[in-house]
């Protein structure tokens, strides 16, 4: 277990001649939580896409558990929910569980629906449920395969107070089973009570700020 869950070296990204990320060096270890904060346009979402394997950086390398072929072990919560509006909540989770090769996808989907408090919405199509509930469902979708690396791009947006505490519980549970968790956020208020390292992303540069613990 001496392998980082995520290791980025010299990652740079440019769109045309516009630099978005510059020489990002980053490591994330199993069982630890890192938060990356930055204003809109600082490159957070681009960085998240690169870490999740959705974008290829212009230069530099990203390794997940030492390889570039570890998609099965990554769970991503993005700005978009990745949920099919015309499928029901249960069907969506079942579909993703199948893609990740999980046993008994139906049963697993129902278990996760209970866990996020949406068992009553199992047969509701996603287009008919609220934005907050869709975000809960997106959390379940990302975590359904018990990923060893969890990447969340502003997971607390659109969530109410109960939703935020649910998301925090899920983060804690992931850390407890040894997963590494990366979160981006505007601020860190929502992370109160959790141990985490904080990085700032400013104009494409990633800088470690300080180890902190906000009293919860």
């Amino acid at each position: 277990m001496t392998q980082p869950a995520l290791a980025a070296h010299g990652v740079a990204m440019t769109f045309g001649v516009v630099p978005v990320l510059r020489n990002v060096e980053f490591e994330l270890w199993p069982g630890s939580l890192v938060a990356i904060s930055g204003v809109n346009g600082s490159g957070k979402s681009t960085l998240v896409k690169i870490f999740a394997g959705l974008l290829r950086p212009t230069s530099g390398s990203v390794a997940v558990f030492g390889t570039s072929q570890a998609r099965r072990r990554v769970g991503l919560v993005s700005h978009q929910s990745f949920l099919y509006p015309r499928l029901t909540a249960a069907e969506n989770l079942e579909f993703y569980a199948t893609l990740y090769g999980l046993g008994d996808p139906r049963e697993r989907a129902m278990r996760w629906l209970a866990r996020i408090g949406l068992e009553g919405f199992a047969d509701y199509r996603v287009r008919t449920i609220s934005r907050g509930n869709e975000q809960r469902l997106a959390l379940a979708r990302a975590l359904i395969g018990d990923p060893d690396l969890v990447i969340m791009d502003e997971p607390f947006t659109a969530l109410d107070a109960d939703g935020v505490s649910l998301a925090k519980d899920l983060i804690k549970a992931s850390l407890a089973r040894g997963a590494a968790v990366l979160i981006t956020a505007h601020g860190t208020d929502a992370l109160a009570g959790l141990d985490f390292e904080l990085y700032d992303l400013r104009a494409g540069r990633l800088e470690r700020r300080r180890v902190e613990r906000i009293a919860g």
């Binding site: 440019t14 001649v17 630099p19 510059r22 104009a203 494409g204």
Partner: peptide, 14 residues
């Protein structure tokens, strides 16, 4: 030229 423009942009911003 694109590469040089980029390097200048990087040098100025950093």
């Amino acid at each position: 030229l694109n590469r040089l423009t980029l390097e200048i942009a990087l040098a100025e911003a950093g």
